[in-house]
Nucleic acid binder design. Structure first.
Lengths: 210, 210
DNA sequence: TACATAATAGACTGATCGTCTAGTTAATTG
DNA sequence: CAATTAACTAGACGATCAGTCTATTATGTA
């Protein structure tokens, strides 16, 4: 599995050895951590670089600006999250509503693992969108639509199995779920407890039309 | 203990009577605008001062630090908001559930008036609480409790009138409302539309146990 | 071998940040 | 009046911000 025998790097070698050969991916990964904890405006490039011991010159070799970097980080997170959603919501070994519950359980575990310091990148940036380059707005809106679509499909599956009413508007329910979910994540961060996620989810499930 | 009478103070008298409320109150008002739009970390003192044309040197005469200033702004907002809630939720000329709807309508109008640039101060600061002085956390949690309490009372009134089930847990419902509400405000800011507030509220009302 | 290019390296710029101190202005008293 | 003291302010301070610049060292290609 470990084919590190890839081509030798071109260019000047790093002074300190890095774990990853792919500096750009390392920067995005580090940026994802930082932005998920601190948002965009409050995250300094220097700090992101420091964590992976990459000099500043390299940053502007790989990214045209902080804005371009931010977009790359968002895109990376969107892909990661969409995949996570698919893993949960398309898992046919569970009934549809249980799959949603599985997603919530995963989120709870994740927040505990990061000691409630990391929320949702999309929610964080959505909050500060007015301070950000305008290009971020549509990017974030599109991501929410993507999530809504995936959740709506899962709800429709529940509908087919008769777990929720045939008359339910699954798209609208999915939209409502994510709207409130961001509030729940934010609150969980604030009180440093998973209860808000739990309460919110239970309320959502109980409110589904049967 | 009380021997301050024996020695009459010389020099320019302190403005104990006025405490120069003008300048200080102006700073808090300007800070409220700024922090509601940009959060705490991204709000510069200079900009807040500039808007009310108070020189920079004066800031640290009125406030010990940016942290202390932030706390004053939060307190101010909490009072303002609690009062707004009381005006809506205690208005007995409407049935209880309609009072909640009135609050939501007011929020929608407010967001339109500020062109979706201002969200909820408590929600904003809750999002970035890990970057803030630790004292902010409990302050924000307490404010949410205050809101929960007020909303729970209104829901109980609805219960008495038979609008919702006697078995409903009003405290928990109220908690859920505010958890999701912050997400709805954030989303409304993002998409620059009141629909998220509307959808969220409709879903909440429809989900109440009857 | 020669040259172009990829990548690292980090000092540097100018702006802005929160904070602080040394000062000025004004009111009161001896 | 002059001394005293509080109210208030101007501007300096070091830190840090995003971003630029030049130099250096490696590989790829001709």
């Amino acid at each position: 599995m470990n084919l590190q025998i890839t081509k030798p790097r071109r260019g000047r070698p790093p002074k300190v050895s890095r774990e990853n050969q792919d500096t750009k991916a390392e920067l995005i990964r580090s940026g994802l951590e930082q932005l998920t904890e601190s948002g965009f405006a409050s995250s300094g490039i220097d700090q992101i670089l420091k964590k992976v011991k990459v000099p500043k010159g390299s940053f502007y070799h790989y990214f045209a600006s902080k804005e371009a970097f931010g977009q790359a980080v968002i895109e990376n997170y969107a892909n990661y999250f969409a995949n996570k959603l698919d893993v949960c919501l398309l898992d046919e070994s569970y009934p549809p509503l249980t799959r949603i519950s599985n997603f919530v359980e995963g989120a709870k575990i994740g927040m505990i693992r990061h000691q409630f310091k990391r929320g949702c990148l999309v929610g964080n940036l959505g909050q500060e969108v007015d301070l950000l380059p305008e290009s971020f707005r549509q990017q974030l809106i599109d991501i929410f639509h993507c999530w809504e679509h995936r959740l709506a499909n899962c709800l429709k599956a529940a509908q087919l199995q008769g777990d929720i009413s045939k008359k339910a508007n699954c798209e609208q329910l999915a939209e409502c779920f994510w709207i409130g979910w961001e509030g729940a994540v934010s609150r969980a961060k604030l009180v440093q407890d998973t209860k808000p996620l739990e309460n919110y989810f239970n309320h959502f499930i109980a409110a589904l039309p049967r």
